[in-house]
């Protein structure tokens, strides 16, 4: 019986707590926390502490009361006969009145099917109240979302999340000044950038261009010949927007600007290495501008591979 009670209580708690599952509220809660200044946080902490104290006091009082009751009962036998309010509550609203098994015959119904008999018990009260509660919630839910239109429709929810994202984006934009794009990207030959680029290349590009950049489905990236230009801006552009008609997919949805910069830099760092199975050159020979000599490549990255 205790399990049922427990299940019932858990269910009620869960039904009431469901809005907490919503991911939108979670994110906005987190962002609200960030936006709060120390004063509000302090206030919040005080409220929580006060509430906790109240709960503790109530708990202690209930305990004292029940202790008093037991004392009173011991002294007054008349009181002992009377069931406690909890007992009354339990029989009335939770488990209901159970006949002991020996007295079951009294409530046995006057029929039997292939030896199966039925008892004339009532539906357990807790189940009945759970039913009432769910019907009530269902009606409220329906009115809220349909007839009254208080609850947001899914499209309204979506638009609200877009607005929130736009605000966050603006905040970020203000902090970062400009973001990297094909007009201002520069080759980043620092060791961490190339290491990150290598990892991205292995995970995303190697399928078509081979692990060592020698090419496969896609062109060879180690030679001097380029289909769409061999400077960092062109490579970045190809990575970002792809060349759909040639089979290169756009990566702008999957990689961030910085990641695209890293992987483009790594690709350029492969220039002049000798892959295991190089694909024949495609496109035009690209003469690097004088601004960046090839020698500037990080040697530690290419240590094992002798330069041409």
């Amino acid at each position: 019986m205790k399990t049922f009670k427990l299940i019932g209580v858990t269910l009620m708690c869960l039904l009431m707590a469901v809005p907490g599952f919503s991911q939108e509220t979670e994110t906005s809660f987190a962002s609200q926390m960030q936006q709060m200044d120390s004063n509000t946080l302090l206030l919040l902490a005080i409220i929580v502490v006060v509430l906790l104290v109240i709960v503790i006091i109530i708990g202690v009082m209930v305990y004292m009361l029940s202790f008093l009751m037991t004392l009173l009962r011991k002294e007054n036998p008349a009181l002992e006969e009377e069931p406690s309010w909890w007992e009354t509550f339990k029989t009335k609203y939770v488990v209901g009145k159970f006949k002991p098994i020996e007295e079951e015959k009294d409530i046995q119904l006057n029929h039997s099917y292939d030896g199966i008999v039925e008892l004339d018990n009532f539906m357990p009260p807790w189940l009945k109240y759970v039913f009432y509660l769910t019907i009530f919630s269902a009606v409220v839910y329906f009115l809220n979302y349909s007839v009254l239109g208080i609850g947001m429709t899914q499209i309204e929810e979506y638009e609200a999340s877009l607005e929130q994202a736009a605000i966050e984006e603006e905040a970020r934009g203000a902090m970062m000044l400009t973001s990297i794009d094909e007009t201002n990207v520069e080759e980043d030959t620092s060791t961490p950038a190339l290491a990150a680029g290598k990892e991205l290349f292995t995970g995303n590009c190697a399928a078509c261009h081979a692990m060592d950049g020698g090419g496969g489905v896609g062109p060879n990236l180690t030679d001097d010949y380029w289909l769409h230009g061999g400077d960092i801006k062109s490579v970045f552009k190809v990575v970002k927007y792809g060349v759909i008609e040639k089979g290169m997919i756009p990566w702008q949805d999957q990689l961030g600007p910085e990641e695209m910069q890293q992987v483009s830099s790594y690709i350029l760092s492969l220039q002049g290495t000798s892959p295991a199975n190089p694909k024949d050159p495609q496109g035009e020979k690209y003469e690097p501008a004088i601004e960046k000599p090839i020698d500037a490549l990080g040697d530690e990255e290419l240590g094992e591979v002798p330069a041409e």
Partner: peptide, 24 residues
């Protein structure tokens, strides 16, 4: 359509007790 979705949810919530009736 959203009204159909909301109806579906409302009735699913109400299904709890009748289903548990069988278990109980």
């Amino acid at each position: 359509p959203e009204w159909a979705q909301v109806l579906g949810v409302a009735f699913s919530i109400m299904l709890l007790a009748p289903s548990w009736g069988g278990m109980v």
